[in-house]
């Protein structure tokens, strides 16, 4: 059996978390509930970092733990590093707050 490389926590998730350092161009097999899916990486992904397991449209939700963790600020192809360069959070956004000083 191949060593586990990435984890999809909830079957509703659209990202996986790498549990080892993964190289650009690698094909990673992830389990999504009962389903297995092979995803070719378009970026190198460090341990603990996330990649998309499905194409994600701009302004749509990033889902991990089956919950919304933020939204895409640009379209994200499958197999791409998902992090602060293409995702913003919805909470603690004082930069958007009208009540800010």
């Amino acid at each position: 059996m191949n060593k586990l490389q990435a984890i999809v926590i909830n079957k509703r998730d659209n990202v996986a978390t790498a549990i080892t350092d993964l190289k650009d161009g690698t094909t990673v097999v992830v389990s999504i509930g009962e389903e297995s899916r092979a995803i070719k990486l378009h970026d190198s992904i460090s341990l603990g970092h996330k990649f998309s397991i499905t194409p994600i449209e701009a302004n749509s939700a990033i889902i991990k733990y089956g919950e919304v963790i933020g939204y895409a600020i640009k379209p994200i192809e499958a197999g791409v590093h998902v992090h602060i360069h293409n995702v913003l959070g919805n909470r603690g956004r004082g930069d958007l707050s009208k009540e800010s000083i």
Binding site: I84, R93, G94, D95, S97, S100, I101
Partner: peptide, 13 residues
């Protein structure tokens, strides 16, 4: 707690 962070006027990230 969130309001205290919002009062700073910046993304808390």
């Amino acid at each position: 707690m969130e309001q205290r962070a919002l009062n700073a006027g910046a993304d808390m990230r």
